[in-house]
Amino acid sequence: MSAPSNAVLAARSLTLGYGADPVVHGVDLEIDPGEFTVVVGPNGCGKSTLLKALGRVNRPMSGQVMLHGRDLRTRRTKAVARELALLPQSPVVPDGVTVRSLVERGRFAHHTLLRQWSPEDEQAIAEALDLTATADLAEVPLASLSGGQRQRAWVAMVLAQDTGVLLLDEPTTYLDIAHQYDLLQLFARLHRRGRTVVAVLHDLAQAARFATRLIMMDGGRVVADGAPHEVVTSDLVGEVFGLACDVVPDPRTGTPLVIPHEEPVAG
């Protein structure tokens, strides 16, 4: 267990929760560099809680989270933010903020008291706006954007942070299906460019299509961990989600696709 590993992120007997009741029970997990890991599971299974702990937003009840082999708790918030970014599920929109000034905030971790601007900032901001196709919206107030545009602006903010690790907490919630795939394509592109991505997703088909590794959680524990076709099986989905289903290969990609047995009630 204490053998040296080149894992980017590792959870060691991680127990998490709010108050007295743990939500996640003693999870061990290693995220290797260059993986696109997707965590799935039923509502309340602890997947978001786990992701937040990996992002140092939640303090573990016990156990540790290691980033590049060092305990997250022993490190300064700002230093961690240069290596790891997390897109929260429902961030607060500050009054009157424009897309550009939001994306600029992503650069905070790279600033010092006296150096709050550099050409690298501009480069990172320009690239983030470019990748998320929000450059044209730069001067538009966030509050007046559509849901899809707004989510892209938030993604641009965490991209400007320019970190090797990207954690995404249900990034596609509230978006229509076209925007969901838009965003997932973007994450896949970032992954191909060498970022380590860990995302929590609800949709099993999307998870299976984009992930290089799928982690399924239930009741605060990891119940399956592996390639998408190993994890998304009719047995496991039946057991974990309580949904009787067939799993067929996606006709386009060959990745597993869940076909529920439930049929609409006629009449």
Partner: peptide, 14 residues
């Protein structure tokens, strides 16, 4: 950054 909520502020480095 604090205006964006504790979680966001934390992950951005403050």
């Amino acid at each position: 950054l604090g205006e964006m909520g504790d979680e966001t502020s934390q992950t951005l480095g403050a």
